[in-house]
Amino acid sequence: MERGAPFSHYQLPKSISELNLDQHSNNPTPMTSSVVVAGAGDKNNGIVVQQQPPCVAREQDQYMPIANVIRIMRKTLPSHAKISDDAKETIQECVSEYISFVTGEANERCQREQRKTITAEDILWAMSKLGFDNYVDPLTVFINRYREIETDRGSALRGEPPSLRQTYGGNGIGFHGPSHGLPPPGPYGYGMLDQSMVMGGGRYYQNGSSGQDESSVGGGSSSSINGMPAFDHYGQYK
């Protein structure tokens, strides 16, 4: 059974990568260096029409794909609405700034607690601290449901409402757990779930790293080290 779990989890990240490629065909995330060049070419072609900065490709890597951004914007706009090009670019920049802003706050907390890995809980905590209170509850529901699907046993073991509240409690517990270095219980099925989560997380991370050849070595190294942080991560969730 333990061997079966890794395989099932291994497929999910791979599937995600494929779906990402399909979904963002206009902004591919290739796995080989040669394709990377081609992808960059595509981006350059699209970008040259709109911008003329010297390091175009590198700069665009710091923004979300503009097609995705526009698609999301149109969800909340009336059909007759038009969006100027400078507005599209401004939203792109705002999104990157938002990610950096929240990540910075989450990372500060990690460092205070002497942890190396930024977790979903750290992100949610940072959003709450920075005033994005409206975002925390929907995202808590979202990440709980995501975990239920990621781990089949999760669905069987707990329902959504208890999970939601448990998450809040988990946040409280997580604040102190890592600093004390308390290991979670292992002899029961709960421990099995824990192992499954750790392996799943590790697999996903590894696959994500392999998705970018330019950092494959570093990614591999991070992946090997990530086994322990992933373990801590799950401990916080309890």
Binding site: L124, I143, A230
Partner: peptide
């Protein structure tokens, strides 16, 4: 280091932010 779930949460959060 970034856990696998952090970008997943951000994907949804950024959608909400853009909206």
């Amino acid at each position: 280091m970034i856990s696998a779930e952090a970008p997943v949460v951000f994907a949804r959060a950024c959608e909400m932010f853009i909206l």
